[in-house]
Write a protein that binds this DNA or RNA. Structure first.
Length: 595
RNA sequence: GGGGUCGUAGUUAAGUUGGUUAUAACGCCGGCCUGUCACGCCGGAGGCCGUGGGUUCGAGUCCCAUCGACCCCGCCA
């Protein structure tokens, strides 16, 4: 039988038929998910985006269709017409939403055949990612990945609705744009028309969205690709998507209010979760003190304590010397330390050494002191003081790291998360939002030998700190904020500088030369001189948000066509060498680094 | 740039102190089977052991190099 497509239209999806529709004549189209051939009757699970329906080929009902059905193999594309039947008692499949019905096929057309697929299209599969990425179009047939893409689409739509309702205007900004200093490595695009010149793909539409505020657009948003040529991680891809937002005539509170509403809207529609509002706020200093990171996971306690003052003059040299040199001694206390196995404990020092810690001391708290290599070096007062500070009870375990504040926080902040995972302190399916505020404006870079912008160079300093820009840049606080969810930074932004004199002072503090500033963003300085409104904004990593919502372990599972850790695409084999003609046209020559 | 894990049929894995014909499951092909739904039963095919070099009488196994996938550090304003 041929001509099925012109004679019939699909009447239903494979996921919607129920017992109430029994008796109807229906037409389904989809893929043969699985075939069960009993010699007589043949069952095929027909699959499409919406689900699976069992279709039945019975030689007594439709001999011709039954004969043709013998040819069906996995992933063949089928069109079937037949009568829907309620399954008899004992023949239903409670695991399928459509399990109470089956389609008794009267007519079949095999619309297309399929080579034997390299893996089965099950929701759960243990196929290697290499194979999945090579055959991504097949991997995307799997329900699990399709669900993620659907979630992503739903969240993007909800974002557009929410922002449009509040007067935000979606504006597209250029991809072929100008390289900016600071920040990540740029992806460059050669200009054929301008030999030797290059565009840069945007790391974010930062400057354009600020210019739109100068233009009086007032409220802007865009769901937009951004590009950063840095090494990849489980949650980092070279091209990723931001929800980018900018608003005029606002303060931090105005923006946070809008954003909390946005988060509530997308988490509701995405996964039916309604976060408590307002979101808690932590200053950067507090976050570092208590959690050791500027992106603390606040789903559990396990906070760090600083005991530097107690051990400053103690008999344990490492502690005392670290304190004297301006370092810190910080602790992490585990209630009932026996929950950690010997093996767990053995792995801890290696783990903190990844973050630069030279050692990890420990103490088991007893009724009458500690079991610890440290115990004999400390006075009773010092031990009691530490116990009091960390609120230790007998049976508890205390970890110590003595180092520079940066290393100690990094080591213990990451150990904290690791231990919480080991101890099962993180409730699955829980979500905890936190704003981090009052970031330092600059961080001193040892490699560059100068201050670098913590956020970016257009971030406004706190008004009271403007005078410090020229005298003590390290003390200046920025009007920047990050939104952290479950230990991931999902978004960050700031109130921007809207005065050109302040902008110049910041460039000066960054030791960017006048010529460089002029060449790189003279246009922004100029723009700021034409009546720029106070403005600010934020940008969210859409991929990371979806990843958290979906509970995905990798950002690749929420991106249709992701890249490998080496930034290649196993499906298309990109990147690839250009032809000689292409190079000539672009006035380019490839120079291979011979060691 | 650095540290780690891994690479054996289409897929996922096993493979002992180096030893003769490299296993298993699923998938695939053929046969049987009219109520299965991870259908069942019988039979069969399928291997550049990532690649290159070395040690050895002999290498999936040991050594070196290299390629690739993943995780992490650096990096990611």
């Amino acid at each position: 039988m041929t001509g099925f497509m012109t004679r019939y239209k699909r009447t239903h999806s494979c996921g919607e038929l129920r017992a109430g529709q029994a008796g109807e004549t229906v037409v389904l189209m989809g893929w043969a998910h699985r075939r069960r051939d009993h010699g007589g009757v043949i069952f095929v699970d027909l699959r499409d985006r919406e689900g699976v329906t069992q279709v039945v080929f019975n030689p007594e009902i439709a001999p011709e269709a039954h004969r043709e059905a013998h040819r069906i193999r996995n992933e063949y594309v089928l069109a079937v017409r037949g009568t829907l039947r309620e399954r008899l008692e004992g023949m239903t499949n409670p695991q399928l939403p459509t399990g109470e019905v089956e389609l008794m096929v009267e007519e079949l057309e095999i619309l297309n055949e399929s080579r034997t697929p390299p893996f089965v299209m099950e929701a759960e599969t243990d196929v290697s990612e290499t194979v999945r990425l090579k055959y991504r179009y097949l991997d995307l047939r799997r329900e699990k990945i399709q669900k993620n893409l659907i979630l992503r689409s739903t969240v993007a739509a909800a974002t557009r609705n929410y922002l449009a309702e509040r007067g935000f205007i979606e504006v597209e900004t250029p991809f072929l744009t100008k390289s900016t200093p600071e920040g990540a490595r740029d992806y460059l695009v050669p200009s054929r028309v301008n030999p030797g010149m290059f565009y840069a793909l945007p790391q974010s539409p930062q400057i354009f969205k600020q210019l739109l505020m100068v233009s009086g657009l007032d409220r802007y948003y865009q769901i937009v690709k951004c590009f950063r040529d840095e090494d990849l991680r489980a949650d980092r891809q070279p091209e990723f998507t931001q929800i980018d937002i900018e608003m005029s005539f606002i303060t931090e509170d105005d923006l946070m209010n809008v954003i909390e509403g946005l988060m509530a809207a997308i988490f509701k529609v995405g996964i039916g979760m309604e976060p408590e509002r307002p979101f808690p706020r932590l200053t950067w200093t507090e976050a570092m003190d208590r959690y050791g990171r500027d992106n603390p996971d606040t789903r559990f306690g396990l906070e760090l304590e600083n005991v530097t003052d107690i051990v400053r003059n103690c008999g344990f040299k490492v502690f005392a010397e670290t304190a004297t040199r301006g370092g810190v001694v910080k602790t992490l206390k585990i209630e009932d330390g026996r929950r950690l196995s010997r093996k767990d404990l053995d792995e801890m020092p290696g783990y903190v050494s990844d973050f630069g810690a030279k050692g990890l001391a420990w103490a088991r708290v007893n009724e009458d002191g500690w079991t610890s290599p440290l115990f004999k070096y400390l006075t009773a007062d010092e031990v009691a003081g530490i116990n009091r500070r960390v609120k230790a009870a007998p049976g508890d375990l205390i970890f110590f790291v003595a180092d520079s504040p940066g290393v100690a926080n990094d080591a213990l902040g990451n150990l904290r998360v690791r231990l919480a995972q080991k101890l099962g302190l993180i409730k699955p399916g829980s979500f905890s939002f936190t704003w981090i505020t009052d970031f330092p404006m600059f961080e001193y870079s040892d490699t560059e030998k100068r201050y670098m912008a913590t956020h970016h160079p257009f971030t406004a300093p706190v008004d009271d700190d403007i005078a410090l820009l020229s005298t003590d840049p390290g003390k200046v606080r920025a009007r920047a904020y990050d939104l952290v969810l479950n230990g991931s930074e999902i978004g960050g932004g700031s109130i921007r500088i809207h005065r050109s004199d302040v902008q110049s002072m910041v460039f000066k503090a960054l030791e960017l030369g006048d010529d460089e500033v002029r060449a790189k963003f003279g246009f922004l300085i100029d723009a700021l001189e034409y009546g720029t409104p106070p403005h600010g904004g934020i940008a969210f990593g859409l991929d990371r948000i979806i990843m958290l919502m979906a509970g995905a372990e990798s950002i690749r599972d929420v991106i249709a066509f992701p890249k490998t850790q080496k930034a290649t695409c196993l499906l298309t084999d990109a990147p690839s060498p250009p032809s000689m003609e292409q190079l000539m046209e672009l006035s380019l020559k490839v120079v291979r680094d011979k060691e």
